[in-house]
Write a protein that binds this DNA or RNA. Sequence first.
DNA 1: AATATATGTAAGTAAGTACTAACATAAGGA
DNA 2: TCCTTATGTTAGTACTTACTTACATATATT
Lengths: 184, 184
Amino acid sequence: MEKTNKRMTREERRKQILESALKVFIEKGYNGSTTLDIAKKADISEVTLFRYFDSKKQMFMEAIEPILITSLKESLVESQGLEPMEKLEYILKNRIKFISEHSEVIKLILMESQINPEVADFDFVRQITSILKDSIKDTGIGLEDEDFSIRLMMGSILSFLYLPKIKDNEIDSYVEKLVDTISK
Amino acid sequence: MEKTNKRMTREERRKQILESALKVFIEKGYNGSTTLDIAKKADISEVTLFRYFDSKKQMFMEAIEPILITSLKESLVESQGLEPMEKLEYILKNRIKFISEHSEVIKLILMESQINPEVADFDFVRQITSILKDSIKDTGIGLEDEDFSIRLMMGSILSFLYLPKIKDNEIDSYVEKLVDTISK
DNA sequence: AATATATGTAAGTAAGTACTAACATAAGGA
DNA sequence: TCCTTATGTTAGTACTTACTTACATATATT
């Protein structure tokens, strides 16, 4: 064994492996990622990987877990007490910033829930749609325009998955324009 | 060999294999699809597959080819002569119908161009964005709102990849509302 | 009837891959 | 110094998978 100062505590190493794994999964997808790829990215031997995780599947699930946990709660809690229209605006800003910041992971999850539902089973689009539907009902926007508004909002959200990133304050002004459009 | 009436001409079989292959690729992705899967879906032996195609890669590329060829030309040609705003509306309707009708394949291409660029190398989002940018310039919409409009349109288009399908006439009225919103 | 074409079956090869076992060693803490 | 913990190396197993070869047979064409 080489003389090296790569030694870490168990927790540090675990975390570092998961970060490396996530990078590889994002780049090559679940099926396209090998455990050797991940080991190389983490700069450790393949055997060490399996001292920390029982299987590739487990690595994947733990790697995406943080995103899934964070994904929904915040905005709903923090927006309590606001007027309906302000609440909608708040949720949109919050959701879009989150999605924009984690677009790569979210695209991965979106993809794997279609292709490998056994490792990532999340109906991301439906979840957000249903939250937005609830919010929009609160605002009292007419039924006729509801589908239009929902699609406009969902489309905007999805655009932040695929179009180049923009700054937070630009997101804010985008959402303000959008809400203005919807409520007119 | 069994007595069977599965015999086809070379052209028929080729076509049928590609159709089956596309279904499998859509369901499992390129890496997740095996040549045996494809053979089973086409109800032929794996060996026969390789009598028609040299490799899985070739099968994939030929399977998605029709979509790539059709994707851009039509709407540009057919919209010639229209007023800028009508042209924009026409392109949007056309693009959205096409995307809505082929959403599964397009999602596959979107996915594989990130993960396996050697089998599908298409910058789908950029291509459409640039066409829309050109169209919107023609309409004379102000610069300040250009980014907003582009994102609204691209988002709408993407929404038709991920939200449930709707009827053609509903697409028409959606686009009309959208263009109205943008041009106001 | 003779020939060409489409397909099947059986068997196999070579490479890749998730995961394991056994043993060795370096570093940190007691 | 002793012991524990983190890591490496080497080798291997069992399975999957893209693709091939050889041979047989059913169907269509001439």
